[in-house]
Each structure stands twice: as C-alpha cells, then as structure tokens.
Design a protein around this nucleic acid. Structure first.
Lengths: 243, 243
DNA sequence: TTGACTAATTTGTATGACATCATATGCATA
DNA sequence: TATGCATATGATGTCATACAAATTAGTCAA
C-alpha cells in the first residue's frame, strides 16, 4: 500500500505539487480501511514524500525530499571498511586544513592550539580516552573553514571513525609514548601552518598526519589478512607502532 | 507526541532493545486516543527508531538508525552555497583521482578515456548539454577508486552540482570554444596521470581542474557581489571565461 | 517434566462518528 | 453586474469501539 503509493510518486505518475486521491478514494482503490490508508500516508509523510493539509487534501511534495547520504554502521566493523571511510575523510580534511589556514581568524587559531595542548596534557595520563579530543581538534579546524558543509560532513563522519580507532589503547605504554609524541609533532605542524596561514603547508601536514594512520591500517590489513577489527590483539599492533 | 517519544529514545531514557509502554499506556500518559499514538509510532517506525511486533509489543531499534548527511537543496541557489559544496567536492575528488591512479584497472583507464573523448565530441555541438557527461567522467574516476563510499558520496553530490553549473551555457560561442578547449586540456592531464598510474600527478591535475571552476565562481561572487545564481547574465560571465 | 490446550495481553485492522479547516455555492445587497 | 456574507460541502484530524491475529503466560493432565 505505502509501497504502491511511493512508487507512483517516484515513477512520476503523481507529479510534485499534484493532489493525491482522497483518503476515501484510496480506500476504495486498494480495498482497505481508512486506518490503513492513513498509516501509509503517515509513513510517506514522515519521509517527506507528501504533505497533507486539513480540509484541502494531500499533495505530493513540491521538492523531492532531500536525498541523504548514509553509511551503514554495521559494515564498519571490518578493517577494509574502516579504511574506506578514512580515505573519504582524508580528502575532506586535507582540503579543510588548507581552507582553514586561509580563512581562520585569530580566535580560531588560538582555539585550535588550545585544543592541541589540552589533548597533549590528557595523553600524558595513559588511561584517558584520547580519541574524542583528537577528533574535536580536527572538528575545530573544519569549523574554522567557515564552510558549513565541510564541518557538518566531518561531524557526520565522527561516529564512524571515533569508536573504531582505539588502536592506541591496545599498545603497550612503552610504544604509546612514542606514538603520542609522533602524534603531537604532526599536530604541531598542522597548527603552525594554520597560524602562519600557509594553506599549502597545512595541506601537506594534514595529509601526512592522516596518511600515517591510514598506512598503519593498510599495512595491518595486508599483513595480517584480518577482516575484522575485533580480532586484532596488542601483539599484532605493536610492531606497527614501533618508531 | 512523536517528538516526545523520539526524544526519550535519543536521550537514552529508552534504551536500544528495550520495550516501550503499550499503546494503551501511552494513550493514558499523553491523554490522546490510540489513533494518535499509532500515527506517532508509525512515524518513528518509518524512521527506523522502533519496530513493533504484533502480539509482543513495540521495541526501540537495536541499532540506532543510520545517521544521515543531507544537504538542503533550497539554500543552494545562492552562489556562496554553491561554492561551499564545490569546496567539499574538491577535497573528495582530488583524493579520488589519486586513489584511482593507484588502483585503476586497464579497463577503468580506457573507460575513463572513452568518456572524455565522448564528452569532447559532444561539446563540439554547441547546443548539447555537456555537464551531465562531464560529471559522468568524474563519477567514473570515483568508481575506479574501488572505494564505494567515495563513489556513493560523489553520486550523492551530483544533483547539487550539476543543475547549478550551466555557466557555460550562458557564454557566447566565441569564448565557449576556448572554454571547452581548456576543459579538454585539464581532462587530458587527469586521464594521462591515471593512465600512467601517477597519483601525485593525478592529484595535482584534478585539483587545478576543479580549482579553476572554483576560482571563477569565487571571483564572480566577489566582483559582482551576487548572492543568487539566477541573477547572473551572460555579460557578467564572459569576462571570466576570457582566455 | 513434558505436552497440549486455554486465557490474557498486545498490536493490526475495520468501522462509524464527530471536529476542524478550506473551499465552493448561493443569495442578498450595493 | 459585482461584492460580501452565510451556508453547504468535502477534505483531513481525532476519537471510541469492536474484532482479528499473533505472542506469551498459565493451567492442567499424562
């Protein structure tokens, strides 16, 4: 029922702005009660396919509902999928860093540096979860691009990246220090480039920062032939975090 | 009503997998009829927030519904918005070109060249709409990255870019030739880089290709102070297409 | 303890009535 | 004729009740 109506709309039998048959007519046509018709209409309405006005009738939405981009969280437990999302993220963030360097205000720059230093101080304590703060650092850069779409897209990507990326948690504290130290250097380079408003340098810095993470994952994926991040144990990881 | 329930779910008062109050209880609580409750539930159900089983009850969905990234097509008539989307696109496509150069198969490469040549032959005829073919060229590169998310994201972006970008339509045929010639050179450079499997070169080529479009739009926006693409006329544009 | 049958609970569907809003109709008046 | 108002009509929104269908809990007997 709902499917049949939905199909008519998407196939263009019912055109945008056009009025639908009345509930009574739909009842006759599909030989169901008004209850069912209204449930179906409610579904389509909540999907934005049609709107109904009391007293006037039901109409196909003028502008087709905003198409959406979605990622299925289920598939993302596999390592290749995680890599894929990271590749997508990388493109956006590299450009974001460059735009940020160009457009940042003084306040933006200092806030970004503050976030980095906050992150540094937190990573000193080994039991802190760092990744959220790491991502907030990246998000702040995105915000400073003054491009709302870039910021929103990265915010959208966040839950698909953050919870998968606890790799550092698995590494022993010996290598962890080295790891954090390297992260810090990479962040520092990004921050300096932004402070100096050097887009090309920011681009390069952000690229190598994310590429490092990406390459570690790719190497991990190739070497171990793993398909699921849940199977990774610490011993496998450590070799990749060695200096 | 629907909002209240939705809020409870998203705020975690009702946890994934948990059972909701029965319809009768919700009727009492909100002091509405069962009809209203069922309409609200239908909305939430179609959004994937909950599922209901006849005879068992209604339950909050185990996995919260996939978060979605959406662009509002309404805002995109303004030039700054168009630029914003193009900036987002640029980051993804530059990375896509590099990945494509690395991973392309022989079949991918020849298909991409074919598309370019098809586009060239079409642009010889001034009344052809070129932009769809232009975008299909870009999409084919994205497909060859073998990264489904990148391909899907660019496909998602397509309708927000294609219809806004009929700039070439407004330019007189004199400059149009020059314009197409330049486009061709840029495309050629991308294709060669992909054929030679040179990711760095592909990155550079794609960047300058998109940057040209972007810079033209930015200049246009700054110079004319226009906020709406519908107000652009040919005379304004031509100066930006001059060689 | 196991098995089947029964009863109770819950959602799905049907039906009829009324409320509410928008539009069309008709009539009276300027 | 044209305008304005009251009314009628038709549409969706809400309510109440009854029954159908499916699941679960409980009872009772072998």
């Amino acid at each position: 029922m709902a499917e049949a109506l939905s199909e008519r709309i998407s196939k263009g039998t019912l055109k945008p702005g056009e009025r639908l048959p009345t509930e009574a007519e739909l009842c006759e046509e599909f030989e169901v009660s008004r209850t069912v018709v209204r449930e179906a209409v409610a579904r389509l309405g909540s999907e934005g396919l049609l709107v109904s006005h009391q007293g006037r009738g039901m109409f196909v939405s003028e502008r087709q509902p905003t198409r959406k981009f979605e990622l299925d969280a289920d598939n993302l437990s596999t390592l290749p999928e995680t890599i894929s999302v990271l590749e997508l993220r990388l493109g956006v963030e590299v450009e974001a860093a460059a735009l940020c360097a160009t457009r940042r205000t003084a306040a933006d720059a200092s806030k970004i540096r503050d976030l980095m230093e906050k992150l540094d101080s937190l990573s000193a304590d080994p039991k802190n979860v760092d990744v959220h703060y790491d991502f907030s650092f990246h998000l702040e850069i995105a915000r400073a691009t003054n491009n709302e779409h870039i910021f929103r897209f990265l915010s959208f990507l966040k839950p698909f990246i953050v919870p998968r990326f606890q790799l550092s948690q698995l590494v022993s504290s010996e290598y962890k220090d080295k790891y954090y130290q390297r992260i810090h250097c990479e962040h520092e380079e990004i921050v300096v480039a932004i402070e100096q408003q050097d887009p090309e340098r920011a681009r390069t810095a952000m690229r190598s920062h994310l590429l490092n993470a990406l390459e570690r994952l790719r190497a991990l994926s190739n070497a171990a032939g793993l398909s699921d991040t849940t199977n990774i144990d610490a011993s496998m990881l450590e070799s990749f975090f060695k200096p």
